[in-house]
Write a protein that binds this DNA or RNA. Structure first.
Lengths: 158, 158
DNA sequence: CGCTGATTTCACAATTTTGTGAAGCTTCGG
DNA sequence: CCGAAGCTTCACAAAATTGTGAAATCAGCG
């Protein structure tokens, strides 16, 4: 029967793509949780469902969702009449994650600025640092534009 | 005496900025090596000099420079008449590092594409994945433009 | 209120990462 | 060729990360 969900294939996908996110610095359990939720049509799961699908302990789920809610990727919620929390991700959480990279670029930029000061702005090494600062500042400005254009693109498609 | 190199301040800077790179996924020792070389006016150091400045073993240096040369950040070289290799970084190694992110975006994109297939392209979850694929493909195209504009900007300034 | 199920916290175990010391290999100069 | 300096490799130790089990806490319902 085509169109039937193949849970084993989904599990495989989750583990594989989780590694991609882990390589980008997201904690493993948080990556697995976020992707697993993303594979559901509703975009939400309870802690117990997550524990079952991921073969992980409630403690691990607890830690993972804490991370995800703190960085704004997931929100906790609870249905009326239920005792279980559920966790939902925004449809555009990957976009949000990329958008938040601006603060990372800022960190690089200011770090490099410190480098220029440390070695002396008027030295060859200092000029090398200054050049890098410029590059990262350029990047930050450009990324703004890129994200704006994506918004336009997306809206114009709807 | 102003303009004198303050080695202790430079050491502090190296360790601090190394953490920034580590958070972006670069191995610690490689980060420290790359930044230390960057703080020299010549843009190059020998393995022995690196070991001394970083208080690290020759083995650690060996592993670090192997990483750096493999990813194209540093090149090994040797002066005529010397027995020591030295390691140099490109002035634009940070630019190169960012430019290489394209392959990372590609990995995300293809991973998300797999996700759409795994859950079924015609499901709500599948559409969510498809949207993300589009976003990352958009990003890849835009980044090309951004880097080109940086090149122009840089050239026009020289 | 007190019971029950859900979630969090905490100490610890398993795993992974990272760097060291020592031995081995390579290369160059004599 | 030989000696020595420099570099690499390998087995292991130290440290950090990550997830578990069990106990504690919390929340809603009767």
């Amino acid at each position: 029967m085509p169109g039937r969900r193949d849970n084993q294939e989904i599990e495989h996908f989750v583990e594989r793509f989780a590694q991609v996110l882990v390589d980008s610095g997201m904690p493993r359990i948080a990556s697995r949780i976020a992707i697993t939720i993303m594979t559901t049509d509703e975009g939400r799961l309870t802690a117990a469902e997550l524990a079952e699908r991921l073969h992980a302990s409630p403690a691990a789920i607890s830690g993972g969702v804490r991370y995800l809610t703190q960085v704004g990727i997931a929100q906790r919620g609870r249905d009326r009449g239920s005792r279980r929390d559920h966790y939902a991700i925004q449809d555009d959480w990957l976009y949000q994650t990329i958008a938040q990279r601006d603060s990372i670029l800022a960190r690089w930029s200011s770090g490099l600025h410190d480098g220029a000061r440390a070695v002396g702005e008027d030295t060859p090494a200092g000029r090398r640092f200054a050049e890098s600062v410029e590059f990262f500042e350029f990047l930050r400005k450009e990324m703004e534009g890129v994200l704006d254009r994506w918004e336009d693109h997306r809206r114009s498609r709807a």
